Simulated assay, not measured.
Amino acid sequence: MRLVPWHDPLPPGIALHRLDLDLAAEDGDAWSDLTPDERARANRFARRADCVRFAHTRAAVRRLIAQRLACRPAEVPLRADAHGKPFVEAGSDNAVPLFNISHAGDHALIALADPARVCCVGVDIEACARDLMADADALLAMAFTAREQREIRSDADLPRAFYRRWVGKEAVLKAAGVGMAEHLQSIGIHPDAHGALAVDCAVPAWAGIEAMALSAPPGYAAALAWHTKEQPL
């Protein structure tokens, strides 16, 4: 397993790491950094790859946050909200970072954000299946707004156009802290030629969430979303 800091430019207050996974490996040192509940959860996965992916991603998150909180990884107080989004229980420490994770295939992304500068953060990575578009009409109608559908259909590379918007949409909804299925049509993602993702939001409470495409490994697409806090004058 290899944890790689992100070197491309990112918004102020956000750090990003990519975890490259060996899904055939043993749990190794990841196991010692998990809580008993997390070990039990890992053991419930039917597929070995899913167990390894969960264990090593969660252990990497704990190590990164433990460095900031000056504690042992297993002592980081991770909790999950009503939508299953993990967070660090703040207690009395205002320096507790915001974070979000996503994993797919052989890679995971871990975003950490300074709560003094960022209200929320979301990240997504997806392995791009070229045969996903076999039933394109139903898929586009379910997941995308009318404008997004027009833009995707007019693109010469339909799968690429699909995934650029899909990862942006998921990152934004993860930043907003809501479930995906019921809000897919509430967000429109419109990429430009330079990697920026314009966000068209139908929910006033989510106004201000921004997004950008990330440089993903070959065969993957990824995006980051965040809401910058207004700084006092």
Results as ranks from 00 to 15, higher is better:
Ala181Val: 14
Ala211Arg: 01
Leu19Gly: 09
Arg58Ala: 12
Asp114Asn: 14
Glu151Lys: 03
Ala46Arg: 14
His103Gly: 13
Leu78Gln: 11
Thr35Trp: 06
Ala25Asp: 06
Ala55Cys: 05
Ile189Arg: 10
Ala129Arg: 15
Asn100Leu: 04
Ala196Met: 03
Phe162Gly: 08
Ala46His: 15
Pro11Glu: 05
Arg48Tyr: 03
Ala46Asn: 13
Ile209Arg: 03
Leu139His: 06
Gly179His: 12
Cys51Ile: 00
Val167Met: 07
Val121Gly: 01
Asp93Leu: 02
Ala25Trp: 01
Ile152Ala: 08
Ile110Gly: 12
Arg153Ser: 14
Glu89Ala: 12
Trp31Tyr: 08
Val52Trp: 01
Val203His: 09
Ala15Trp: 03
Ala25Ile: 01
Pro36Lys: 08
Ala223Leu: 11
Val199Tyr: 04
His194Cys: 09
Asp114Trp: 03
Glu148Ile: 11
Val199Asn: 08
Leu184Asp: 15
Gly179Ala: 13
Leu140Gln: 08
Ala223Ser: 10
Leu140Glu: 09
Leu109Ile: 13
Trp226Gly: 05
Arg62Gly: 09
His227Val: 00
Val203Glu: 14
Cys201Ile: 07
Ile101Ala: 07
Trp206Ser: 11
Trp6Ile: 10
His56Leu: 03
Asp200Arg: 05
Met212Leu: 10
Ala60Tyr: 10
Arg130Cys: 05
Phe45Asp: 11
Asp29Met: 01
Arg2Lys: 12
Ala134Gln: 15
Asp33Cys: 15
Leu214Ala: 09
Asp114Gln: 08
